[in-house]
C-alpha cells in the first residue's frame, strides 16, 4: 500500500515501506545492533525509545536509536556487531 524506501545497512541494499523505522531496516540484515561493554550482542528490547539497546550509526552520527528514527531514501546505517 505504501511506497518503498531504499537505504543501505552495513553496505547492503535494503528496501522497507515508507514510514518504517531504521530498526526494521536493520533487522532485515542482522539481529545484532550493538555490542555491549562486555562484548555481547544486543538488539532492540523496548521498541519505544527507552532502553537504548537499538543504537546504530546513521549517516555518520553515532548512538542513534534505530527504533525512534524513520528511514529516509539513501540513508547509510552501520551497526556495531
Amino acid at each position: 500500500m505504501s511506497a518503498q524506501v531504499k537505504l543501505s545497512v552495513n553496505g547492503l541494499p535494503v528496501e522497507v515501506p515508507a514510514g518504517a523505522s531504521v530498526a526494521a531496516a536493520v533487522a532485515q540484515v542482522t539481529m545484532q545492533f550493538r555490542r555491549s561493554v562486555s562484548d555481547t550482542r544486543r538488539a532492540p528490547l523496548c521498541g519505544m525509545g527507552v532502553c537504548f539497546e537499538c543504537r546504530v550509526q546513521v549517516d555518520g552520527v553515532a548512538h542513534v536509536r534505530a527504533c525512534m528514527t524513520a528511514v529516509t531514501e539513501g540513508m547509510q546505517v552501520t551497526t556495531d556487531a
Binding site: 514510514g19 530498526a23 539481529m31 550482542r41 532492540p44 528490547l45 532502553c51
Partner: peptide
Amino acid sequence: RELLLPFSGWTLPGVTGAGGLQALAKQGW
C-alpha cells in the same frame, strides 16, 4: 513504558517487550 523484568537469556537478540514487539512490528519490523 513497559515493565521489563530480568531473567536468564533476556539479553538475547529476539527477546523484546510484548508491547515492544508490537511497536516494532507496526514500524515495519
